[in-house]
């Protein structure tokens, strides 16, 4: 660890801190936002630039300490950024389906007219 120059340590620290701060904010949003559909947005903070920051730190650290020209963290970035939208879309569709099945008025109805914009508590008749 001693062979790491100061500039590299600063950069690694910066990326690690920025990435984990974004992840923390995302999860705080998960805890603080009010409805499910608002909370769906929160985890993408951690999976987009949160993950990129921390994995950049890892790439930099292992490349500079010379154990390996580390690039395979890129795999995690690609993997996470491809899978997160899929899981979130599936979950959101499941939530839509359940809310519609219960007809609790939280979501716009399945077949709806020509209106372009619907406010959050949608009119059940719309």
């Amino acid at each position: 660890m001693s062979e790491l120059p100061v500039w590299a340590a600063l950069l690694v620290g910066f990326f690690a801190l920025a990435g984990s701060l974004l992840t923390l904010l995302g999860c705080l949003g998960l805890a603080r936002l009010d409805s499910f559909y608002e909370r769906v947005h929160a985890p993408t903070l951690g999976t987009s630039f949160g993950a990129i920051g921390i994995l950049l730190a890892s790439i930099l650290y292992f490349s500079v300490t010379g154990q390996r020209p580390a690039v395979h963290e890129v795999l995690i970035v690609i993997f996470v950024s491809l899978t997160t939208p899929v899981t979130l879309m599936l979950l959101a569709r499941a939530a839509l389906y359940r809310d519609r099945a219960e007809q609790n008025g939280n979501v716009p109805a399945a077949a709806f007219g020509q209106d372009v914009v619907v406010e959050a508590p949608a009119d059940p008749q719309a």
């Binding site: 660890m1 790491l4 340590a9 910066f14 801190l17 921390i54």
Partner: peptide, 12 residues
């Protein structure tokens, strides 16, 4: 650099 790394990783 070791202290910088130690503390930033710990805080992260």
């Amino acid at each position: 650099s070791e202290t910088i790394l130690f503390w930033s990783i710990l805080v992260s």
